[in-house]
Amino acid sequence: MHILIAPNAFKNSLTAATAAQAIEKGLQSSPLECTTQCFPIADGGDGTASLIIQQLQGAVVQTRVHDPLGRLITASFGLIENDGTAVIEMADASGLRLLKQDELNPLRATSFGTGELIKAALDKGVNQILIAMGGSATVDGGTGILKALGTRFLDVEGYELINLPENLVDLHEVDISQMDTRLSNCEIVVLCDVDNKLLGEKGAAAVFGPQKGADADGVKKLDAALTRLAEVTLKITGKDMTAVKYGGAAGGASSGVYAYLNARLVNGIEHFLTLTSFDVALEQSGLVITGEGSIDEQTLQGKGPFGVASRAKLKNLPVIALAGKVPQQENEQLSKYFDVLIAIGNEPTDIKSAIKNTEQNLVRTAREIAKLLKLG
């Protein structure tokens, strides 16, 4: 039996690659005679770009950019497809992981550094840029990205606004006359790991603001700022930032680049699996094992394990999913894609301990699965 091991990252615990290795270790330490292939996956979240670069044997380019609070750091992007396509991880320049807990402030954090990465990629002469937008510290509607590329955000008197996104409520005009002209000859594709729209109860501010440090008052201010940005943008570009699917990803940065850079917003896992030729790996497999930190009905909204299982089912392959948390009751919808759904914990424990023991639990669970497979 050949087993394809294709997990997503286990959030706050293991990267996708480490999770795959743990599952493989468990299988190989069992009495089951099998071959394995590790194929760690990502759906647009933090770590997507690095996996794409590794899978396609791309080159890594380092450059100096500004972090979400304006401090100089070294970040990187990848070059694939004969250096014609750049792969950018928004989290490398504008990520939550770059800030300490007491530094989180989405009213002031900006995506400017991601715009600098785009500019550095244009300097390399690319004609396509892929952006994985998961893990950002920002809720600025992409204004930081656009500012780095030459856009100016002006008040009613024509002065450039400072302290964005908080002061976007005073936005009157967006000046795109100095936008980097090279963008017109470069396709931008954004890999999204959530399908939220820009505004409302399930919008960028309401859902992601608290995760990035916003209190209730901050969420209201951010939603008002994004609302004003969308209103002015509609007048200038004719594009409705509030209507586009995936527009709330990365604090609305996806809808900002959609409106001003003609970016194409795509389902992250589908694009990842196509780009990395996942179906070729499926052809050789008799069983697929996937997983991530939590699997529930939200997984079916385009998360990594769902993308893996969907493609496996098209080839009538059985799928086992491993997760730290699974539904207590049988779920008919999940059962259509995951033949077996297993929680990897082996005893009652707190979340901190569960996260700490993720790797050990994956090894043990995979070993027990292999023993069951050997029993037939």
Rank of each mutant, 00 (worst) to 15 (best):
A17F: 04
I53F: 09
I3A: 03
N8T: 03
K11Q: 05
I3Q: 03
I5P: 08
E33K: 14
S30L: 11
K11H: 00
T15Q: 00
T48P: 07
L27D: 11
A16R: 07
A17L: 13
C38N: 14
S30V: 07
A20E: 08
F39K: 05
A49Y: 00
A49E: 00
I52L: 14
A16D: 12
Q28D: 13
A22T: 06
P7L: 08
G44P: 03
I3F: 01
E33Q: 15
A42C: 07
K25G: 03
L32R: 01
L27C: 14
I3V: 15
S30H: 05
P7Q: 13
Q37G: 04
T48F: 09
Q37R: 12
F39A: 01
K11F: 03
T48Q: 02
A42Q: 06
Q54V: 06
L4W: 09
S29W: 04
T48A: 11
P31Y: 06
S50T: 11
L56I: 09
T35Y: 02
T35P: 00
G47I: 06
A17G: 14
T18D: 15
E33A: 15
Q28F: 14
I23P: 10
E33S: 10
F39S: 01
L27N: 14
A22V: 02
L32A: 02
E33C: 09
Q21W: 00
A19K: 00
A16C: 09
C34Q: 10
F39D: 07
K11I: 09
A42S: 14
N8R: 08
L27T: 11
I23C: 10
C34F: 09
A16F: 05
S29D: 15
I5L: 07
A9G: 03
A9Y: 02
A42R: 06
S29F: 02
G45H: 03
A42K: 05
Q55I: 01
I23N: 08
T15F: 01
A19P: 05
S30Y: 07
T15D: 10
I52H: 00
A16M: 10
N8V: 03
N12R: 03
E24L: 14
Q37N: 08
Q28L: 15
L14Q: 13
E33V: 10
A20W: 00
P31M: 07
T48G: 13
F39R: 05
K11D: 06
I52V: 14
N8A: 03
G47P: 04
